[in-house]
Design a protein around this nucleic acid. Structure first.
Lengths: 141, 141
DNA sequence: TTTGATGCAAACGGTTTGCACTTAT
DNA sequence: ATAAGTGCAAACCGTTTGCATCAAA
């Protein structure tokens, strides 16, 4: 836990208790939490925590490249991924949960190897797979 | 224009003037319009058109498989694509415009060829490329 | 006639903003 | 002392809903 705080401090982030709680909630979290999920999880131990602070901290962490905001909405809310680097995501159409996908395109895939498409410069790629997760599949069976 | 109306009718859609206007606006439209863009475009010629009707018609068309709702928000609003079949999308981080991407993954790409990932059944894939479109690039140069 | 579509307005809900207060430097 | 972060509430805005009206079958 320490190294990430040091890195954030080096990046110029003021480390308040609120921000540390939010970062702690995010580190190693693979559930792709929404603002409300982060807020609710922290509020139990930290009753004065405000949603506005969660919003503002996530924006700062996003600008620092520490967190990525996904394009998909998790049950209507923006959700976040603390894992850096490109990877894809699976969303269950039934329960709405978002999961990291380990399968990757081959490096030679044209969509990954080009940095320009139809004359437009590409900076980032996000792929989303939709379907039914194994939990929901076994429940309905 | 006629064949699509016939097809929609066969699918059980009641063809009202409002719905026809919305379909006309969508056919051949590659701008990935939002509800408000569709509504604004039609309202000039059709002053009583209501946004609620646009919402409800898009939902029906989506359920019929005639239109797909994209996962990305175009300047904060849901946007739609009348082109059937899988293809990818590019969004300009500057102007927010959404463009169809002609480049495709090879058929043998693992992410396309599997129908299950980590035990979860996959029904649909959407990929999004982010960057700066050529228009915005030349403007800032 | 009966069913369904329309359109207005109100409600909803996630996100943003303003501002007074508090905390870090 | 100054700058920055927090937290509450209000505002914002895209979307949904309720309901009376209207048109299609």
């Amino acid at each position: 836990m320490q190294p990430i705080f040091e890195r954030l401090k080096e990046k110029g982030l003021t480390l308040t208790p609120q921000r540390m709680a939010i970062v702690e909630c995010l580190v190693g979290n693979t559930t792709h939490p929404t603002v409300d999920e982060i807020y609710s999880g922290i509020k139990e131990r930290y009753p004065t925590m405000s949603k506005a602070t969660v919003y503002s901290t996530l924006k700062v962490l996003k600008d620092l490249g520490e967190v990525q905001e996904l394009s998909i909405r998790k049950r209507g809310e923006v959700c976040f991924d603390p894992i850096p680097g490109m990877h894809h995501h699976f969303m269950c159409s039934e329960c709405g949960n978002v999961l990291d996908v380990t399968l990757a395109c081959p490096e030679k895939c044209p969509i990954l190897s080009v940095d320009t498409i139809d004359g437009h410069k590409i900076n980032e790629i996000q792929a989303y797979l939709y379907g039914i997760c194994s939990d929901c599949a076994s429940k309905s069976a």
